[in-house]
Design a binder for these strands. Sequence first.
DNA 1: TTCCTTTTAAACACTT
DNA 2: GAAGTGTTTAAAAGGA
Length: 483
Amino acid sequence: MGPTMPPSKKAQSPSSGASASQGMSPPYRQGDAATAASEAEAADLSLSLSASFSKAEDEELTSLSWLHESTDLLNSFSHSGLRSVSPLQDPDGQHPRSPSSSSPSPDDPLLGDAHTAYDLAAGANRKPPYSFSCLIFMAIEDAPNKRLPVKDIYGWILEHFPYFASAPTGWKNSVRHNLSLNKCFKKVDKDRSQSIGKGSLWSIDPEYRHNLIQALKKTPYHPYSPGLATPSTSPPTLPPTFHHSPPLWSGSPLFRKNGGVLLQVPRGVIQNGARVRSQALFPVIRPLPVSPVGSRTSAIRSSLGDYLSRGQDSPSRYSPPPCSEDLQDDHTYSTAKSPSRLCSSQVTAPSSPLDDDDIIAVEIQSDVKPEPREIPLDSHVTTAAATYISQQPLRGQRRSSGVGTLAGSSLPWTKNRARGISDTLPLKKRRAAAVEKPPESDDEEMKEAAGSLLHLAGVRACLNNITNRTAKGQKEQKEALRN
DNA sequence: TTCCTTTTAAACACTT
DNA sequence: GAAGTGTTTAAAAGGA
């Protein structure tokens, strides 16, 4: 029943080929003609970027300030004349995903044409190195009210990633699919928001916003990477293979081989140690989930400013998920897992194949929250936890056929389940309940963000209406009594 | 080879 | 009724 993949798709796949899995001897050669000066400059900029990310990490990533700083730094980077090969370029400078790409292959991949940050991330006609989840997240975050109808999400993606203008229309379906299934995205009840025509507004679920940030953070922006395995105590130095690392974006084999993180760091550390300091893991460069349009970023910055500044004062607002912050976490298929289960699984998983469980355990324990909560997990953590999970009674099987083997570990935890809606209810009722039910945590956030209309508009419309209605009812009662 | 995850396609229901 | 939106299922593809 399933569709047959277009023949081109395989060829377009960023993860095709064994080159990336071969680590530091990629086909994506770049910088053979780079000068020492440009290397030094690149190193400086990379270090600055790294510092920015590290700072964000230290700030518990409760804000997007790291993104803003990185945007500026990256702009500097692109203006410096340095560039990196597009992640989607093949060794010959072609663009596997878009053979028709008109982007030239510079003679000097490192010093070549003045690629902008935009080009680095999403050069026209190149499939962006971001998953749909990241694209949607960026689109929504780029919206003034942090909410967008699906139509505007299309528009944002088209605006920033022209690749999709000529791509098959299926990507819109994928966007909708992501919105529906990805628990990170939250539909704002239409009746309680301004009329936008068809459909609803979509926003980021604050509970999972951090995951998306992490996902974006781990989306490689340019391929400098080999030094990422350098321990944090080591002075960040330009790795010898600085110009020869494979492109690292969410679809790259290396990226995926590392469990959704960038480099050849001990698997356990990266895959489980979401809280491991970025300096340890990404001493040279960090992924840049940067909106390609500077003005947009500025808009984000300004619009988020108030909220972010306060958010840092209340670190619990977007407390990082206890178990994982992986890119994969944002997708319902794999990440909508039982909170308690996964936490316990992760913490107690006795014999994970991972190598650096010590670090992992410490980090996890320091982050685990007592209350049960859906915590997306890294796929490899899932593997570690699979044993535990497989011993548990199956709580649901959405994908009852076709991939039955998945049912136990990955599929029962759908978006709706994530919201705690009774599985026994019909789908529509569950969804309705999900919309009607004001999240408990919202109240606290509402209070916290009382001064931030922007945030309220972006996140709390649903609760707002409930509150308003309650207040209105009380007011009417008072008036009735007076009369 | 099997398992797992992500992407893509398709069908269908619902809404405007 | 048409078009857009949202949900669900299924399969392809690739990595572990």
